[in-house]
């Protein structure tokens, strides 16, 4: 046994082991979005679920991003077949109500789902305070670099994407983002 050679050979694999060790600390499914900091893509989508007063919009109305200039926009992509959308539904709906009268606009975007299923789902979940729109062909979803649902985008008053949340959002993060984006807009 030549120990010197043995040692050198062993040393060669150390970087590989370190690399694997590093890899274990990362989640390969987590892919950072390049969008935050960039202008949000414009959209004009048709309302299918009206929401509740005072946030209600008539079904068939068009929600345009251009019309929402000067407001913080919370864009939530969801679907009736999405299990984890159930976790955030109540929180989003309630938080939107809390911000009534402030320059904040919540919009739900139905992703790859039939509007009829969406309406039924909202009913089952006990209603949704803000309106939801359809996204034919998932064009808007692709414009926003969507991987899956739920995903929530926070747009600042200048129409820039400030933050993208993957997976269900919690109340703390919604409030934190909306409050700070409003504060920036007010300056």
């Amino acid at each position: 046994m030549n120990w010197k050679r043995a040692g050198i050979a062993a040393l060669c694999v150390v970087p590989l082991i370190i690399l694997f060790g590093y890899g274990l600390t990362r989640d390969p499914k987590e892919i950072p979005s390049p969008l935050p900091g960039h202008d949000a893509s414009p959209f004009a989508l048709t309302v299918f679920a009206p929401g509740q007063a005072p946030l209600a919009r008539a079904p068939g109305d068009t929600v345009k991003l251009a019309d929402l200039k000067g407001q913080v926009v919370v864009l939530n992509f969801w679907a009736s077949w999405c299990l984890s959308c159930r976790d955030e539904h109540q929180i989003l709906s309630q938080t939107a109500l809390d911000y009534v009268g402030k320059p904040v606009h919540f919009v739900g975007v139905l992703y790859n789902d039939e509007p009829a299923n969406g309406t039924k789902w909202i009913e089952q979940m006990g209603g949704q305070s803000y309106p939801s729109v359809t996204d034919p062909g998932a064009r808007t979803a692709i414009d926003y670099g969507l991987y899956g649902v739920p995903e929530t985008y926070f747009l600042d008053a200048n129409g820039r994407i400030a933050y993208k949340a993957t997976g269900p959002v919690n109340e703390r993060i919604i409030r934190y983002l909306v409050d700070s984006l409003m504060a920036v807009a007010a300056k």
């Binding site: 120990w3 043995a6 050979a9 062993a10 082991i17 274990l24």
Partner: peptide
Amino acid sequence: GYYFLAFIAVVMLASLALVAGNSE
């Protein structure tokens, strides 16, 4: 993953050292 990493590390280090040590 950590168990496997430990095992791979041991096996790689030991077997390569063994092969290199016997190479002559």
